[in-house]
């Protein structure tokens, strides 16, 4: 199975925020919401020395995504097609993981805007623009729309220092495969939150230490989305009602 993934090289990253804005511009993501962000970390002391580094973040397109499990929308069958023409039939909710690319997506047609998946993500990678009449969950798509035109994701294309490396983890000739399999890259996960994020980081020891300390999720947020089905539907219904009034 393919899994698209990204490696972010903190040795190259200078924290310029171009990625965050290119994403915002490409997909008209409204302020203050984000699909893609840069958090500035430090300068702080670490056991390996003083660190001043960055957390460029985006949806991790996890191996075991929890956001997809809390969606209250009735599953619907869909046939997925791989590049090579293979097909696979899956019953999906309004947010799902594409079996051929590993990309986690939102079906905007069917999303009811309940916000369950937003609450569930331990990385805060999703948002719901409540100001809209009919809000839909939104998040990074790894720019699958651009891939059809042989374009890399907008954040990768604009990255001024070439710190974002994008590719398919199942392709042993890809740069991401090589870096990830060298064992040098880390994922932001803890024993509480171990859902296989597919954004990896490499960098100096001190920077990785600070990144892990400040940005590793520990809260199993999806477990806070209680009685997901009923509550979500209710919330969406209430919003619609409020808008109508």
């Amino acid at each position: 199975m393919s899994q698209l993934a990204m490696v972010i090289d903190l040795n190259r990253c200078v924290g310029c925020h171009a990625c965050a804005i290119a994403c915002r511009a490409e997909w008209a993501v409204p302020v203050p919401y984000r699909r893609n962000w840069v958090k500035r970390l430090g300068p702080d002391a670490t056991p390996k020395g003083l660190s001043f580094t960055f957390y460029p973040g985006l949806c991790n397109h996890c191996d075991d995504p929890k956001c997809t499990t809390v969606c209250p929308v009735d599953p619907e069958e869909r046939v997925f097609k791989s590049k090579s023409g293979k097909t696979k039939k899956l019953a999906i909710r309004a947010t799902y993981k594409d079996p051929f690319t590993g990309v986690v997506l939102v079906d905007k047609e069917r999303c009811i805007g309940c916000g369950n998946c937003v609450e569930a993500c331990p990385y805060g990678a999703r948002y719901l623009n409540e100001e809209l009449d009919d809000p839909k969950a939104d998040k990074c798509t790894f720019c699958v729309e651009r891939m059809a035109y042989n374009l890399e994701p907008a954040c990768v294309r604009t990255c001024i220092s070439g710190a974002r490396i994008f590719g398919d983890l199942s392709d042993s000739s890809s740069a991401v495969y090589k870096i990830v399999n060298s064992g040098k890259a880390i994922r932001l996960q803890s024993k509480e939150v171990a859902i296989g994020p597919n954004v990896y980081y490499i960098g100096k020891d001190k920077d990785i230490l600070l990144l892990k300390e400040k940005c590793t999720p520990h809260e199993r947020k999806w477990e806070n989305v209680k009685v997901p089905m009923r509550r979500g539907i209710l919330k969406a219904a209430i919003r619609k009602l409020a808008k109508a009034v």
């Binding site: 310029c16 171009a18 604009t158 001024i160």
Partner: peptide
């Protein structure tokens, strides 16, 4: 976006350029 033909920056621009 950066001018892809540019030998200096290619398709890249910084956060400000993007804004």
């Amino acid at each position: 976006e950066g001018n892809p033909k540019s030998p200096a920056n290619g398709p890249r621009v910084c956060a400000r350029g993007n804004s």
